[in-house]
Design a protein around this nucleic acid. Structure first.
Lengths: 216, 216
DNA sequence: TCCTAGATAGGGCATTTGTCGTATCGGTTG
DNA sequence: CAACCGATACGACAAATGCCCTATCTAGGA
């Protein structure tokens, strides 16, 4: 099995170091490297035949957290392992929330990096022990996690929230209309407006976004 | 450095197996073993000069979760690593809540077990990758913790989980097909099968149910 | 008072989805 | 070996969805 890997890091020297570490392993091939998130996204549009992306966090233009979120949204099949110098709680938690499949530190040795990639492909999560401990602490104490996701204010009307609530249960337009004593046309219109406000294009996306913003 | 270890397991045969695994390493010494929690607590009253306790979960009299809680309360300096056969979400989460410093599976090989102990002593958390992934999912979706009321076993194939993951992002059949290098027909068929297994009839319901069961 | 936002309602249309079929191939297991 | 499951793939069709248009009525803010 050949592991198709991409590396994203704004430091060319570090990209080189990672390449070197992985060069020991024949079944790993570096498909491409990028200096920031938007460069990666462009490359993915051409070719998303990838297994794992090794992603730095601190990067100009589009940082590793946002990039992870966007890549996971469009290409959920690609595993993303954060590979960064810093391991503060905020970064770790945001990376996990963004959908990261693992979190390693740059000081890692070649074998552990390789094992991490393998474990990730086998449906596990690559994590070094100190990171693992931090995730345990986060789980023990969920209050320490503050949601910063609502940076843009989203204001739905009362009626729209009601409709969204019904949407989230998986009900169809006609059923929602019955429940709220409305015409199906009205429900459709409400949903159109909701989509515009949330900037989404489907039920699932709307519900997901609404949940992230604590609207429902 | 000599690692002082205790083993708690109601199965004497398994205690022996763990001892055997650790016998390869000279700097590990098994200080004592117990068949259940209360036996351990009695022993700790006589001697709590211990580094790590390897703790089973399923035990009579006083199970591993409760015991962990009590030991951590009285002797917070002693590290506790769960060593159990089962890795269901409930056990993992409860063990973490109780204060466990790690969570390993009994099938582990000697080296990994030894490394786990070392990492734990170095201020990390011992965890195998599949457990690590489960903790990540729990962090992403804390609601799935409370919602373990209906514990009917749902077994989706690896491929089905992949498809479900893509579904959860709001992607259409055709996009999913592109991402996974499949024909749209195949994606449809997978989704049909997923719906049957989950007993649902729409994307949203499927995603909701999968999240509640910590599948995605 | 005028204007805007929200709630209501309808029509139309291309696309997607959910649900039926059927079928082949490879591996596992009894 | 047979039976079964999972992964693959195609066709058909009704229903649902997403998105565009227009329109009326009401309440509240500029």
């Amino acid at each position: 099995m050949n592991l198709k890997v991409a590396i994203v890091d704004d430091n060319t020297f570090l990209i080189h170091a990672i390449k070197e570490k992985l060069s020991f392993f024949e079944d790993v091939s570096i498909k491409h490297t990028s200096l920031n998130g938007s460069e990666l996204l462009t490359q993915l549009e051409h070719n998303h035949n990838l297994d794992v992306i090794l992603m730095d966090i601190e990067m100009p233009v589009l940082d590793g957290i946002e990039t992870t979120q966007m890549v996971k949204q469009k290409y959920p099949h690609i595993k993303i392992v954060m590979l960064t110098a810093f391991d503060n709680d905020e970064n770790i938690f945001n990376a996990i929330k963004a959908g990261a499949d693992g979190y390693l530190l740059k000081e890692i040795n070649p074998e552990d990096l390789y094992n991490g990639l393998q474990e990730t492909m086998n449906g596990g999560a690559a994590m070094n022990p100190s990171i693992a401990l931090k995730t345990l602490k986060l789980l023990r104490n969920p209050d320490s996690i503050k949601n910063q996701s609502d940076k843009e204010e989203i204001s739905l009307s009362k009626r729209e929230v009601e409709v969204l609530e019904q949407l989230s249960k998986g009900l169809s337009y006609t059923i929602i209309a019955e429940n709220l004593f409305l015409s199906p046309s009205t429900v459709r219109k409400h949903i159109e407006n909701i989509y515009k406000k949330l900037q989404v294009h489907s039920k699932i996306e709307a519900v997901q976004k609404a949940k992230n913003h604590n609207i429902i």
